[in-house]
């Protein structure tokens, strides 16, 4: 009973630390320091100082990068393998191999779902909600994103710890690719609602021409070449400068 409680406390500690995986993100070692920080609570238990601690830190300060949410699977799995390593049941090389074997597939799945799907979707739903609820839109954004975010953070550490090296086969059973497709559908649906709402808003507040102007600009912008789409801040700034030119016109005239 006491052992179970201690284990639960350690896992909670790992989950809490996993939120700081990217704190020291840098161009050379990527998430390495963050990973070492997350694992250092495990290190205190399994590495008894001196050479063992140094080897432990060397294993976890090497280049590492994956999706920060799904990294929780690797964190849980690595913690389990480190415990086995301290009992002499597995080698250090196996731990490093698990980390590098899972980092790329988890990054591919996680980035598509969390960054390219869920993040824009939660923003879109937040914007729609802001039309009705005002400041409540921010709460909708936070709720939609964090239901999935927190679920996978917690589940990842727990499943990873339960499965250890068996985690590799678990990854292929993740439901996230299917969820990504659903997120795309919901996003397209919500986009349709937003388009009508925005046009109606402008029409009511300003001019009927908004019916044509807004969708035309949106479609043109939506199909801009890649190099311009990645510079949307600069394009918006140029539009803003146009507004300033109008001011200059007002000052001169």
């Amino acid at each position: 009973m006491a052992r179970k409680r201690t284990e639960r406390r350690h896992l909670l500690g790992l989950i809490a630390r996993s939120f700081y995986l990217q704190t020291a993100w840098n161009y050379e070692f990527l998430q390495a320091l963050g990973f070492a920080y997350v694992m250092s609570s495990v290190g205190r238990r399994v590495a008894s100082g001196g050479r063992a601690t140094r080897e432990f830190l060397e294993r976890h300060t090497g280049l590492f990068n994956t999706n920060p949410v799904l990294a929780s699977y690797i964190i849980g799995g690595t913690a389990r393998l480190e415990e086995r390593h301290s009992r002499g049941e597995t080698s250090g090389a196996e731990i490093v191999a698990l980390k590098s074997a899972l980092a790329v597939p988890l990054a591919a799945v996680g980035d598509r779902f969390f960054w390219a799907g869920l993040r824009p979707l939660s923003g879109l739903l937040g914007i729609l909600a802001a039309g009705w609820l005002g400041a409540g839109g921010a709460l909708v954004l936070l709720a939609v994103y964090n239901v999935f975010h927190l679920y996978y953070r917690v589940k990842g550490v727990l499943r990873g710890y339960a499965l250890g090296a068996g985690l590799v086969s678990e990854i292929s059973r993740l439901r996230l690719p299917r969820l990504t497709v659903h997120v795309g559908w919901i996003g397209a649906f919500a986009l349709g609602v937003l388009m009508v709402t925005a046009v109606h808003g402008w029409q009511a507040a300003w001019k009927r021409e908004a019916v044509f102007v807004l969708p035309s600009v949106a479609l043109a912008a939506g199909f801009l070449p890649q190099f311009l789409r990645t510079r949307v801040t600069e394009v918006a700034l140029a539009l803003g400068a146009l507004g300033l030119l109008l001011t200059a016109g007002g000052l001169l005239g």
Partner: peptide, 29 residues
């Protein structure tokens, strides 16, 4: 209005670009 159009365009590029299958969902919205 133009900035808002540009912003909605960004969402078009995220959710509708290159995926014809999503057109019914957009039309439904």
């Amino acid at each position: 209005l133009l900035v808002q159009g540009l912003g909605i365009g960004v969402l078009v590029s995220v959710f509708a670009r290159g995926v014809r299958g999503r057109l019914p969902a957009f039309a439904g919205g």
